[in-house]
Amino acid sequence: MGTSVSKLNKFTYTWLILFLVWLGFTTTFAFAEVVTGILLSFTVAIFSYKSFTYDGLKIFSPRRLMYIVQYFFVFMLALIKANIDVAKIVINPKLPINPGIVEFNSQLKSPFAKLILANSITLTPGTITVDIIDNKYFIHWLYVTGTDQETTYKEIAKQFEDILIKIYN
């Protein structure tokens, strides 16, 4: 997927994102600030566009944007749930944990999608991504409910991967 995107496409994407971050940090639309931002993000983009993105502007198609918004809400819900779960375990005097490292296979192909899945897993209920080897994810799980790959996949990754597949594959 990464090689099919043209250089111009990648460059424009990098420029746009960097400029948006600049606008966010300066929070002003004064002429001088905006021009400085355009020039600075242009300069930085020249040096960094090759490694900044895999998919370029493709990500801005309306269908994908819709799924990204959906992903954001699913992720926020899972994040809040994760924090409450871990907090409950910490408060409980018996400290009910049953840790272990489990594995499952992912169908994602794009490296960026893999990164997002790994990050989301790390931020959700009692799970940390220890390593990814090819398509195998190794997860440290605070409360293991099953070691076979199907259970772990369903419990840990399914809700995120379903959406990520629609965005990236």
């Binding site: 049953n98 840790p99 490292i101 594995e103 080897i133 070691t147």
Partner: peptide, 15 residues
Amino acid sequence: PFLKDEKIGDAYKEE
């Protein structure tokens, strides 16, 4: 890692 249950192993170590 600390393992409480013997059935639950360390998949990463094996790999």
